[in-house]
């Protein structure tokens, strides 16, 4: 018997062996139908949520890891069919020794292979030092500090590139983890924050075209596209709350398929119920850098001050 078929379930749409089993839909898909299904769902997410419009200049944040690699591959494949949309790939090099070198190279190689304009911005150019230096003695706060600075770096990079949209590779697992973490912290304003909303030009809207695709599906897509790279893991993830939440939610999703999607749906329902001014204080301007801020100083300037910068 054919080695590929032996013991395998067959695709729900043809007679080829299945490469994935979608547990919530109870559906088997072969390589061809799985890739077509995933591409169609991403297209659907972009269109129904009006993430990308004609004339958009979309900056794609690409770390070189699997999610952003899949995002760039998918957008470069799907967007040529749309009118007058331009892609620019941008990497933020935080300066994490033994980790970022390999992922930056992977990101640059991919962008060049796809013929997409590429830029890399490094922490020292924006904040004076690498993340490794900024974190000395504060390693347990790594993800919080890096998150704030990386978001700022992305915004600067997107502004420099003249972006009208900023696309990130957040997947369903990431988004469900964020909902769960914000609920655990009791952080309702952050839970309902919608960074994709129209802010009347004060922010570049963020879009997350992979937010309804699971991490496992993204990995399978990359393997099938021969784009899977074994890359090192960030040395600071061992300090992250997200790591614990990821494990808890993954166990829950296995035992109760659909859990992550339900979390996303809950977030959207809460977001709709809280629409309006309930939690959104009027925006001010940071007195140090001039960025939009909820207080006298923005989060970045507060952080840099606490780091002695």
């Amino acid at each position: 018997m054919n080695q590929k078929v032996r013991g395998a379930s067959l695709c729900s749409r043809c007679d080829e062996p299945a490469v994935v089993f979608q547990r919530d839909a109870r559906r088997h898909l072969c390589a061809v139908h799985f890739m077509a299904d995933l591409e169609s769902r991403v297209t659907d997410t972009i269109k129904t949520r009006r993430m990308i419009m004609e004339g958009d200049r979309v900056v794609v944040a690409i770390s070189g890891g699997k999610d952003s690699t899949a995002l760039l591959l998918l957008l470069s494949r799907l967007l040529p069919a749309w009118q007058n949309v331009q892609l620019i790939a941008i990497t933020i090099d935080e300066g994490i020794a033994g980790y970022r070198e390999a992922t930056v190279k992977a990101a640059e190689d991919l962008a060049h292979r796809l013929g997409i304009e590429y830029h890399c911005i490094a922490f020292p150019d924006l904040f004076g030092d690498s993340l490794d230096v900024l974190l000395k003695g504060r390693e347990t706060l790594a993800c919080s500090i890096c998150g704030i600075l990386r978001r700022k770096a992305l915004v600067v990079a997107a502004q420099r590139a003249g972006a009208t949209k900023l696309a990130t590779g957040h997947n369903l697992d990431d988004e469900a983890q964020s909902v769960f973490m914000n609920a655990l912290r009791g952080d309702l304003p952050r839970l309902i924050r919608n960074s994709g909303a129209d802010s009347k030009g004060r922010f570049i809207p963020r879009i997350k075209p992979l937010s309804f695709i699971s991490e496992k599906e993204i990995a399978a897509y990359l393997v099938l596209k021969n784009a899977w790279n074994e890359l090192p893991e960030c040395p600071y993830t061992r300090y992250a709350l997200r790591r614990e939440v990821r494990s808890i939610l993954s166990d829950f999703e296995y035992r109760h398929p659909g859990t992550m999607l339900h979390l996303m749906e809950s977030k959207e329902k809460i977001e709709r119920s809280c629409a309006g001014p309930l939690f959104s204080a009027p925006l001010r301007t940071c007195r140090t850098c001039g960025d939009p801020s909820s207080g006298d100083l923005c989060q970045v300037c507060l952080l840099l001050r606490s780091l002695g910068r």
């Binding site: 013991g7 699997k66 991490e215 893991e233 960030c234 993830t237």
Partner: peptide, 30 residues
Amino acid sequence: LVSRNGNLISEDTVVGDEDEIRVIRIAHGG
């Protein structure tokens, strides 16, 4: 993800004594 002879297989695939399967860990931080 799991592959057999370089081909991805779904988790309900039945494997036998003669098979060699490879596990690919998908979760990476960063």
